[in-house]
Amino acid sequence: MTEDNHLDKEEKERLSRRKFIKNSGIAVGGLAVGGALGSVIPWKKETGNQGIEKGAKGEKNYNQALMNFTQAEFKVIDAATERIFPKDDKAPGASDLGVAFYIDHQLAGSYGFNARDYMEAPFFHGEEVQGYQGRMKRREIFKIGIRELQNYSHEKFDKGFTELEADQQDEILKDFAEDNVNLSTVSASGFFNLLRSVTLEGLYSDPLYGGNVDMDGWKMRNYPGNQMSYKDIIEKDFQEIEPTSLQDHM
């Protein structure tokens, strides 16, 4: 998947914009984090409506705590991924499946630090067919992307993302997905595509990673998870098989 960001796309505009931000005293570590409204909007304590404190079968799940996000960032991601894969009367959504915890945990490790990607300079803006050419690591893209979601929500609806109605959240995400938001920091669609791909990972990876709670992600699509053999059914018509996870190998 591509999480192309266009840091170098409009070099001139970027420089003048960076100058503006610098002059406003809102540059963090040399990296502009302002969206349309800059970073002047502080994080507010927002009341999310996602209850994910409960883990497996109502027991306390010690895995569900944060190693990367702030609590406010977590709530935005929890709300946004729930819109990407919403709960309905048939199947759980991203929030119930622990997707935001999954993303938090991934960003804290080698994936978030792009440890196995080629991150050597020089960095140039490339063509789409050449893939991601930015210097930012995924955890930085997320930090800024969340800030931009938040800024854009304030710009458009005068509220933080988690305070919006579901259809308003959808509108915000759609504008990101379709690059209708003009950002100078990260590519809006690049961030959205990254968010979408890690959402799918959180829904369907082995529960050991923090998402797919209770294997409910697998159950809703009749995916049997970790099975040692399908030899007995390979010649047969469709079978429903109770899933097992890697934990069953320990």
Binding site: A115, R116, D117, Y118, M119, F124, Q130, G131, Y132, Q133
Partner: peptide
Amino acid sequence: DLSKETITFRSNEKMRALPMRQYG
């Protein structure tokens, strides 16, 4: 491990080749 070694890619000789930074 691409952090240690990758290839660079361009569609044609007029383009600047850039590293394949991630798998695809």
